[in-house]
Computed example of a mutant assay.
Amino acid sequence: MAHLHRPASPSGPGSARRVIHRGTAGGGRAGAARAGGAGRRPRAVPRPGAEPGDMTTTLITGANKGLGFETARRLVAAGHTVYVGSRDAARGRRAAEELGARSVRLDVTDDDSVDAAAETLAADGGLDVLVNNAGIERRTPDGGVLDAARLTADETRLLFETNVFGVVRVLHAFLPLLQRSAAPVVVNVSSGLASLSRVTAPDSPAHAYPGVAYPASKAAVNMLTVQYAKAFPAMRINAVEPGYTATDLNRHAGTQTVEEGAEIIVRMAQVGPEGPTAGFFDAAGPLPW
């Protein structure tokens, strides 16, 4: 198993009463000082005996728009057979037609939906790469962040149902297919706000972010990443921080384009068997936890 990279990054969405469903999960203000010397950028490695992306089947959750859609576009161009996972079947079909991809209805909060999607991919031949991209953020009606003084258990539970339990639900359903792959890869879209190092550093932009539930959910995703990577050393399982990308999640307030934000997702979706695992990365390299 590759070294465990000790990463981090800032990122960030606001949070609260209005639920914003996204085809992306990243957020984070790029540009905070990199903690403790980042290592080299992870490099995409061709799969044994094939060109990069050749004969590779990839599922992306929340892929009918935003970062998920752009990731799908790039991986289709790289030669992957891509399944656009979408809660709304019609939107998923439209996105897939535009991309030259396949669509599958997949609501990460619903067991039956996830199980049915797994059955569909099993019947179609299996799965090599899973990108857990679907996620939500909670905002107040005026677009503000639900801070510690106003956060409730119900608000937190709703957000965790998608961002954390959804990841576990999808992994549980698709692990049997991934284990049959010659080079299985999982990419969990996280956030720089999940980095305890960044959030506690006074000189980091993440330090000033007052939201609680969203960063907590992404910190949980990071822990899931490490523990699953340890449990399945033959897989390459990593978390990524896309950066503060303009998507529906942040009302398009992000400072990056989806093309920029998708870069690290696409790169980590193409790592080979000798690539990193149990790491946390942004486009510049490893991040501190």
Rank of each mutant, 00 (worst) to 15 (best):
A182I: 14
T24C: 06
L224D: 00
P13L: 15
P13F: 15
R139C: 11
A122M: 02
G254N: 01
T120H: 07
L249N: 04
L196S: 06
T56A: 06
S195H: 04
A269H: 00
T200A: 13
V19I: 15
I136W: 02
A44Y: 12
N222S: 04
L193N: 10
E97H: 05
A284T: 11
A278C: 04
Q179L: 13
Q270R: 01
L106Y: 05
S190Y: 06
D88E: 01
D128G: 13
G36Q: 07
A201T: 09
R40D: 11
V226L: 15
A35E: 00
G26A: 03
F232M: 14
M223T: 07
D124Q: 14
P233I: 00
Q256W: 14
A101C: 01
A173L: 06
G31C: 12
E155W: 13
A153E: 03
A123Q: 11
R267E: 07
T58V: 09
S15F: 11
A123T: 13
K218S: 09
V167H: 00
D112A: 15
A72F: 05
D115C: 12
M1V: 04
Q227T: 15
A96L: 08
R41V: 15
Q256F: 14
P286Q: 03
P184F: 12
A283R: 07
A208Q: 06
R94W: 02
A118S: 11
